[in-house]
C-alpha cells in the first residue's frame, strides 16, 4: 500500500506549485495514472482523503485520468477491445508480435486553487483595483 506515500507526494507537489499565491485552498487536483503504474485508483483516492484531512485542502477533489496500455501491432496498428487485465501474445490479424505503448504515467497534471482575496478596506475600495 504505497499509495499513501504517493498521495503525500502529490499533495507536496501541489502545495509547492501554489506557494507564493497567498492564502487559499486547493479545490481540485488532476493526476494521470497508467495501467502499468502499479497504482490502484481506489486506494489512491482513499489515501488522498487521508493525507489532506485536517489540512487547508481537506475535501479537495482528486480526479484521476486513467491511461490504458495499448497493444500495438507494427503492421496492423493498435489492437482494439482488449479486456482489462488481459494481454494478447500475438496480433489477432497477422499473428505478429505486439508492442506495448503507454500506461506508465504517474503525473500531477494541474489543479484549481481558490485564492482568498483580501477583505475590502474600510473605505469600501473594491479589492483588486488598486494599482501596484
Amino acid at each position: 500500500m504505497h499509495e499513501m506515500g504517493i498521495a503525500l507526494e502529490i499533495h507536496r507537489v501541489c502545495r509547492e506549485a501554489v506557494a507564493g499565491r497567498g492564502p487559499g485552498r486547493i479545490e481540485k487536483v488532476r493526476v494521470a495514472v497508467g495501467e502499468l503504474s502499479a497504482i490502484e485508483p481506489d486506494l489512491l483516492r482513499f489515501a488522498w482523503e487521508a493525507v489532506t484531512r485536517e489540512t487547508t485542502d481537506e475535501g479537495a477533489a482528486l480526479e484521476i485520468e486513467w491511461h490504458r496500455t495499448e497493444q500495438v501491432c507494427p503492421s496492423c496498428g493498435p489492437v482494439p477491445d482488449r479486456a482489462p487485465g488481459t494481454w494478447l501474445r500475438l496480433c489477432p490479424s497477422c499473428g505478429g508480435p505486439l508492442e506495448l505503448r503507454g500506461g506508465t504515467e504517474l503525473e500531477v497534471l494541474d489543479l484549481v486553487f481558490a485564492a482568498e482575496d483580501d477583505p475590502p478596506g474600510p473605505g469600501g475600495d473594491e479589492p483588486g483595483e488598486e494599482s501596484a
Binding site: E9, I10, A17, L111, F113
Partner: peptide, 24 residues
Amino acid sequence: SDERDGRRVTRDFVRIRKSALAAN
C-alpha cells in the same frame, strides 16, 4: 465563513505536469 466576512474567492487554474515520483 470567509464569504460571510465579505471576502471574495478567486479560482486559478494551475498547470503542473510533474511526476508524482519526482523527489524519489
